[in-house]
Design a protein around this nucleic acid. Structure first.
Lengths: 151, 151
DNA sequence: TCAAGTAAGTTCAGTTTCTGAACTGACCAC
DNA sequence: GTGGTCAGTTCAGAAACTGAACTTACTTGA
């Protein structure tokens, strides 16, 4: 199975992977969340090759995660901004970064996240939409099998 | 920059990507969370090539996300189980799947997650470790710049 | 007025990685 | 004793990625 066939798998994780399923893409989204908008900026931060970056940005635009906006007419210059769909990845990135900080501790400076509403530096906690309690490991069961190929 | 050089970037997201930064790996972890343990099982579900799968499983074992356990001596047979580090990816996968369900709605059956503690089907909500409130879009600021290359 | 710099890319040869299919080896089931 | 299962490995051909150079259209400085 090829990369671009992942899209066909009827599972939300596979769907997500078809859009943001490689390391460069994730790093681009990370930078966008931190405020990057320009091609050169993404290139300096991610260190991906220009061809790669061009390809991945187009992919993100195609899938509605970012939009390409002209910010200067002469010469034509474009920047990339997160759409609503892209901004909805913020919690995903927070939880992912938290996993990295907690489980791959390499003396890497953490992202210092501050919650404006309460003013504190915080860690993202995943909790239950119904009872509000944090989800404990092992406290989740799954009903249906998604994406199990028949073959 | 090459795939395996991502590990050198001093940023928790890049660190995470160096371990689980490709679509197949994520699909393997997804299956493991849903209960898969055997090579053939991962192969049927992910549809990755056998060489790819073999490679990615080794990578996950190397990085302590899964462990390879012999469950039969004659003939030797192994299975793959999530370690603590791997189980800590459950919230990440929940939030990722939730993004896919919400923002890439393709009539894909969702994962029906049930919270054992309260008995309800739920959605994962990311909230603040300090005040307990759900994180609203735009309510987070970042202090330090991580992983911005000096060029 | 000319050179250098910036920005957002594209092009291309060479390299690396991945795919698909077949193959292996040790068993079991009929 | 033919076929099936399981956990892989091997390999040729195909696809993807890298690094470097190139392009277009300005602006800045000397």
């Amino acid at each position: 199975m090829r990369w671009n066939e992942i899209e066909a798998i009827p599972c939300p994780v596979a769907q997500a992977m078809s859009v943001i399923g490689d390391a460069w893409t994730i790093l681009i989204v990370r930078d966008a969340i931190r405020g990057a908008t320009r091609f050169e900026e993404f290139q300096r931060n991610t260190r991906a090759s220009r061809a790669m970056l061009s390809d991945r940005l187009s992919h993100l635009v195609e899938h509605g995660v970012m939009e390409r906006v002209q910010y200067e007419a002469h010469p034509p210059r474009y920047e990339y901004r997160l759409t609503d769909r892209g901004n909805a990845l913020r919690p995903v990135m927070m939880v992912l970064a938290d996993w990295g900080e907690t489980w791959l501790p390499k003396k890497v400076r953490s992202w210092k996240r501050r919650h404006k509403d309460c003013g504190h530096n915080f860690r993202p906690v995943v909790s239950c939409s119904e009872c509000g309690e944090p989800i404990e490991p092992g406290s989740v069961t799954y009903d249906a099998q998604p994406a199990l190929a028949k073959a």
